[in-house]
Structure formats: structure tokens, C-alpha cells
Design a protein around this nucleic acid. Structure first.
Lengths: 187, 187
DNA sequence: TTATAATTGTGATGTTTGTCACGCGCGAAC
DNA sequence: GTTCGCGCGTGACAAACATCACAATTATAA
């Protein structure tokens, strides 16, 4: 479990055992049940989460009460409402369990503390942030270049496991297409 | 001109005059003409740009030869093909002038050097990266929650100046809508 | 088990948006 | 000044997609 996070960080940054122990002391292990909320819309966002196991959805609820999936978060992914987390504002989104999920969480204070005390971790977070930005840009590109069926095929190719673990209605919401239209694609 | 960059950085990070002089020594001032390319698709991306004046478009060309506007970059914006810049791969996009444009450019080597020598600049880049990620996520949300007309209205509200400086066909491409459909919105 | 809710597929229909075709006005280049 | 290309609007039609309605199947909980 600890090993998982260490290996994850070491994909980007080399880390001695002592350093990792120090890093880990800034995190808290937590378990959540299906449908539990890690972040509730409208509240302060004090934590960022590294997913050890399970599956989360980052959701925006629009003024008509319709939910939109901004992102899924599986094993080895980092998730939070980053806007609210970094700018220390109220959340406009919620983060909820699709499955029972265990995470390492880090508070904003500990995040700042860790970045200062161990600068190479700041570099780690920077690299993670790049990746996130690049991933978002690719998702924007898929909206610009592809129609619903093509986006469906891309997602199926990139993350086939989601089609087994997530209700189709949520996949539809993630792809920006109606549940019915998505259902007709799988023929 | 130098003052502009200093003020821009100081919105996020305090900087002494000496420090700023040091920072600036890592940048190069450059001028480009309308239609010039700062980044050509398929080439290495060695520079990241801070726009002093003018206007750029970040473009992805799909397999059908259709151009898609990933982003505009105006005064005070940072732009590059970040994926290619940070991962040091070939560019999948091009960066081109919509107007005559002057920039400060920083090479990837100088960027790494600067980050190491002056850690607070690493924090600056980190904060910039957050903002970029958050902005991209908001753009994704606009695709998920809004139809073409609504996205048009949002852009008009957020960046009215673009409607004066950019051909409508490019705005259409940015919004993911056909030129004709966008034209019918402005009635 | 039984009842209850959630998930999924599918037909019918309407709306949104794209594509093709054309004309007009304006500015750049010669 | 004339020519040429570009930006922009607009009509007609086709394609993509949403919405509504309903049935069937599968999970979940009492």
C-alpha cells in the first residue's frame, strides 16, 4: 500500500526510503464506501486525494440539476477540485465514490509544508500538474475534432475497464452525450 | 516592456529588482509578423512564450486537413505546445500569429536552469500550470453543459475583444461549431 | 424471497447543427 | 483602378443528436 505510492512518485522523482517516510507522514490513509462524498459542492476543499483502490467521479451539477462528469479517478490517479483546493475557495463540484475506495489524502497545509521542506516534491506536483493540463487539452481536442461516436470509441480504446465498472449513463455524461445515444453506439 | 513581465510575475511571486534581472536574463525578446509560425507542427518545441503584445493561435490540424483552435494567446498569456515542450517530443500543434506579435521566449534548458537556481520561479510556473489546468477544465465543462449558442455567449462575455480582433471562422473553430452556425448566432 | 430501485435498450419524433452552394463587400497587391 | 482573395452572411437540405415514452432486465434492500 505504502509501496504503491512510493513507486508512483518514483516514476517521476527518485526518493530515498527516509525521504519517502517523511513524505508519507504528510498523508492520511482513508477508506470510503460506495456513494460516500469526499468533496461536497459548496464546501471548502482541504484535501487532495491519491487513489489506492476503487473509483471516484468528479461531478458538476448544473442549474437544471443535471450532473456532468468532469473526470473519473481510478487507482493511481490524483483528484480534487483543484480550483477550490489551490485557490482555497468553495467547491463548485463534488467528488463521490462509484465503488468502495481507499485513498491517501493530503491537506493543503501539509501540501505547502511538504513542498517547502522537500523541494523535489514541489517538482513532482509540478509534473503532475503538467500532465493534468495536457490531459485536459487532449480532452478539449476530442470535443473539437470528434463526434459522439468517435469519442465513444476513443474512450473504449483508452479505458476499456471503465465500461465494466461504470454505469453507461455516467459514461454518457462524461462524453457529453445522452444515455440513449450512447446506448445505440454499442450495437 | 520589462516592467510588464515583472508585474506579471509579481502577481504571484514577490521579486526583488536583482532577482528580476536574473530572471530576465533567461528570456529572449522576439518579434513576429502576422502569419509567422512560432511553432511548426512536427518539429521540436524548445521554447515557451510570454506574449507582450499581439495575438497568437494554437492550432491542431486533423487528418482531414481541418484546423482546430486549441487556444488563443493574448497579451500577458503564456503559450506553447506544453506537451511537446515539457516532454521534449515533436509538436502535434502549431503556434501562429494572428497579428504582429512580440514575446519573451524561454528555452527549455533555461527554464530548467531558472527553476533550479531560483526555486521561487518554480513555484511561479507551478501556479501558472494550475491555472492552465483549471482553465482547461472550465472549457471542458462548457462543452459538457452548454450548446453552441451558450458557448458563443460565454465567450462573448468573457473575451469580447476577441470578436474584434479574430475572424469569425477562427472563433467558430475555437468553439467547436461551424462558421455558418456561428454566423447565425450574431443576429 | 419479495419488493423496490437502478440500469439498459429501443422506437418515434423534434431540435440542433453541419454541409453545400451562392453572392456581396472590402482590402491588398499589382 | 482593377483583380483577386478573404471574410461574412444566408438559404436549402441532410445528418447528428436529444428528448420522451415504455418495456425488460438486473441489482439491491427489506
Amino acid at each position: 500500500m505504502k509501496k504503491k505510492l512510493k513507486e508512483h512518485i518514483e516514476k517521476l522523482i527518485p526518493l530515498s526510503d527516509d525521504e519517502f517516510t517523511f513524505v508519507l507522514s504528510h498523508f492520511t490513509f482513508e477508506k470510503y464506501k460506495k456513494n460516500d462524498f469526499l468533496i461536497q459542492e459548496g464546501e471548502n476543499v482541504n484535501y487532495c486525494y491519491y487513489v489506492l483502490s476503487g473509483l471516484l467521479k468528479l461531478v458538476f451539477n448544473d442549474k437544471n440539476g443535471k450532473q456532468h462528469i468532469v473526470s473519473f479517478a481510478m487507482e493511481d490517479w490524483w483528484e480534487s477540485d483543484f480550483s477550490a483546493y489551490f485557490l482555497q475557495t468553495k467547491s463548485k463540484m463534488s467528488l463521490q465514490c462509484i465503488e468502495d475506495t481507499s485513498v491517501y489524502s493530503i491537506s493543503h497545509k501539509n501540501y505547502q509544508k511538504l513542498s517547502t521542506e522537500l523541494p523535489k516534491m514541489e517538482l513532482f506536483f509540478l509534473k503532475k500538474s503538467y500532465s493534468g493540463h495536457i490531459a485536459s487539452q487532449n480532452r478539449i481536442l476530442s470535443f473539437l475534432t470528434s463526434n459522439a461516436k468517435e469519442r465513444y470509441d476513443q474512450l473504449l480504446k483508452q479505458h476499456p475497464v471503465l465500461f465494466q465498472r461504470v454505469p453507461k449513463s455516467l459514461l454518457a455524461s462524461y462524453l457529453g452525450v445522452s444515455r440513449e445515444t450512447l446506448s445505440r453506439f454499442s450495437l
